[in-house]
Design a protein around this nucleic acid. Structure first.
Lengths: 360, 360
DNA sequence: GTCGGCGTTTTAACCACTTTAACAGCCGCT
DNA sequence: AGCGGCTGTTAAAGTGGTTAAAACGCCGAC
């Protein structure tokens, strides 16, 4: 009763451990140890009294305090783009895996909903968000590559504070963090095989913007090139230009090419929509005149007319693996050695946009 | 130099205020006051030295500490369903408004992605999430009604801890918290007027499940009933049953009714999709044989064939208003008096699914 | 008797600051 | 010489606990 005199305990104030200890008739230290689960060396009766007291008073642990003391907040910062359904799936996986470990993701959102699906990050917004996360001492980070790269700015600090980082869908041989990516080589092989089996020989591919942050765009294109070469079919590649939103124009151009491709593969389902549009303009019917294959299996893919054949990325698994990797790093408090790149398989979902090629 | 002896300052350890003070050659207290912005009573040179020292060391404020001291974490918990584009919009508004105030939302996600758009909450999951938020001492909460209602469980505690709550899209006269809702009366008047202007007289409405947590479903139906009555048109209401997913069946039944309605309004865009499907099955063409109006303007609405006429809920504004209300309550640390219900207008977006009714 | 052990308390230090009060050194001015 | 003002310092208490070490009271066994 020396140090910590019972303060006013005005009924409005949330209960402190002190209050619990008093109600249970034990010392503060005893209450602390019991409520943290260290009930060895205490009799069962005492433990029960303390737990009961905590419950009647409505006491709850204060993660701010343990955060201060241990330096761990059981919290992971997540920076992702304005969600499309792929990112929602990733997020679901992250939530679930972190939840199992009694961690909480703090998700911030970089960019502008009106510039879906891709946009250039606003630097000051990004820095502000990162600061808010680090000020709250997140134990780790899961990042979307454009953010991770643009804010390489923070890399040194993250290193110093040993905040582990996992990037999603970014691969680089010079990586300075862990990563989870889709196995593009395997995924593109599925697509090539499917088209070959259907008898397509003239295939076009509309790639995404192949900028640094979108390493998957490069790997997907290369994967498809290789897979088509191996399968003996011609692949004509068109890339979206770096400046902006011209998938529809590109799709139109591709359809004017002679010989006209009998199948078009697109970097994501977003571009597949533009192919549908361009095909309609050109009076071509999908799938009879033109087969289309997308990538991602976004929520709208199954609802298109005809439903889109596409590669389903296992978004939930990607998120879960990313979460598991941060948790591992946090547990090991290791950084800087042996960055890993986990590859997640993808599945081909065959729907109505692909049928056998016409005999020519 | 008495109390706080310089500890090892091993280069790996993140910098403490102590380190900054030493580098700048000032006392701890001085460094604290300067970095918190209380630079009156310090010379400009000193302030600059301290700020420079903090920057070279990479010091950053520790919100865990100020959280402990002030009881405020500059953090708001947000509980929402697996996102559809409405909720993404709401979230965007919340992020933006909270960001302006240097607050951070912690968004948790209740339910299962596979049971979109509506589902019954899993109680233990919900309690777990709520505990994780409260353990981190969020300053306020923005809740999705099913959660808010199911976890009325926590209401007492929230009251005791004076954690303000704002519910989104829930209204009750017996409310025990603030709310932001769509102005259903005005929105439904827009719909009724539009249909009347197009000459429709036989209108059907497919309501959502009118369960307690979906107060908007009731208000939307009542609003439309009133608006149609006022405009002198017949409204035939069908409700989805509480058990489950039968919008397609309901749509089929509505289309078999005689006289067949010339226009169908649905509680949300989700049900409008089922109307499209049922119409296709019945060989009816939209909009010529049947006009359709949805609610929400979800992301897929504009992409349907034909594009859906729908009421656009101002999701971003709803989120921003909700955030502003929590911030107000937090600032005033007032609870329990004068709960407010902010109504946000909605806009009618006329697209291709509505045209003038046929002369009969 | 006293020793050992169990169950518990006491004490102190620690986490990373914030805040307040008291006070001190120095300058210029009167 | 004395005063006030400016620019700082020092010390102490507080935030809500956690943790380790040492001590204490009581019981049964020897």
């Amino acid at each position: 009763m020396a140090n910590r005199v019972a303060r006013s305990r005005s009924p409005g104030r949330p209960p402190r451990l002190q209050d619990v200890a008093e109600l249970a008739g034990v010392s503060l230290g005893a209450a602390s140890r019991i409520l943290r689960g260290d009930c060895s060396s205490f009799s069962e009766g005492t433990s029960e009294r303390v737990v009961a007291a905590a419950s009647t008073l409505g006491w709850r642990r204060n993660l701010l305090v343990s955060g201060m003391q241990t330096g761990k907040t059981r919290t992971v910062g997540v920076v992702i783009p304005p969600y499309d359904s792929f990112w929602i799936g990733v997020l679901a996986g992250i939530h679930e895996r972190l939840g199992q470990a009694d961690y909480l993701p703090i998700t911030v959102w970089l960019g502008d909903l009106d510039h879906m699906p891709h946009f250039e990050a606003d630097e000051s917004q990004g820095i502000g968000l990162m600061n808010r996360l680090l000020d709250r001492r997140v134990d780790g980070l899961i990042l979307w590559p454009p953010f991770g790269l643009a804010y390489y700015h923070h890399a040194r600090e993250l290193q110093d504070r040993t905040v582990p980082v996992v990037m999603i869908d970014y691969h680089s041989d010079a990586a300075m963090c862990d990563a989870v990516t889709t196995d593009e080589a395997a995924a593109t092989r599925l697509v090539a095989r499917h088209l070959v089996d259907l008898g397509h020989r003239q295939v076009a591919y509309i790639s995404s913007r192949e900028v640094a942050s979108q390493s998957w765009a490069v790997e997907r294109r290369r994967g498809l090139e290789r897979a088509c070469a191996a399968a003996g079919i011609r692949l004509a590649v068109s890339k979206l230009n770096v400046a902006g939103d011209n998938a529809l124009d590109v799709a139109r151009k591709v359809l004017r090419r002679r010989p006209r491709p009998s199948a078009i593969v697109t970097a994501t389902d977003h571009e597949a929509v533009d192919v549908y549009r361009a095909a309609a303009e050109a009076g071509l019917r999908i799938p009879d005149d033109l087969a289309v294959v997308g990538f991602a299996d976004l929520d709208f893919a199954a609802g298109l007319a005809p439903p889109l054949t596409t590669v389903r990325q296992r978004a939930g698994e990607i998120g879960a693996r990313a979460a598991a990797m941060v948790l591992d790093r946090i547990a090991a408090s290791s950084r800087g050695s042996g960055y890993r790149d986990v590859q997640v398989k993808a599945d081909l979902v065959v729907r109505g946009s692909t049928v056998a090629a016409r005999r020519t």
